[in-house]
Amino acid sequence: MTAAAADKPKKLVIIDYSGELEKTWATMILASTAGAMEMETTVFVTFWGLQTFVKDKKRITGENWMQKMMSFMQRPGASHRKLSKMNFMGMGPWMMFKLAKKYNVAKPKDLLEMAMAMGVQFLPCQMTMDMFGLKREDLIEGMGEPVGAATALQLMTEADSTLFI
């Protein structure tokens, strides 16, 4: 056993802010691998990032017309992320998933499930839930209790590494 491994586990915090496919992919690759490396990993999920954690089968979320309109304009769910560039009405993501399958690259949703199984903690941002009118039952199973910026900052000050994606 190496000296480093004998010490207390390394801590990683990821702020999952963006909802785009390519950034979500990066978040899920790093979160799942950090879990595999036995790093104590927390992902604080906020703003557009939280759209990734809405159940795939949910089409419209929110309570008022603006929240509903927002979810209508950009479909929530881990399987429905768009590319920030070259989205081309879904052609871009379609090709990305084709390539991922050809080269045996795991999809963000699969990586998310593996990360959860490896003990990575995903914490939804309460403020984002309120603003988008998201309820706990709109979000996938296995997330932690909703928290706020102070909790995120506290985790960040204690972490060995922090990423804002």
Binding site: I29, S32, T33, G35, A36, M37, Y103, N104, V105, A106, L111, M114, A117, M118
Partner: peptide, 14 residues
């Protein structure tokens, strides 16, 4: 075999 990063590490861990 054939799996891309990070799957070999994840499968090994599992």
């Amino acid at each position: 075999s054939g799996l891309s990063c990070p799957l070999p590490i994840l499968k090994a861990t599992q």
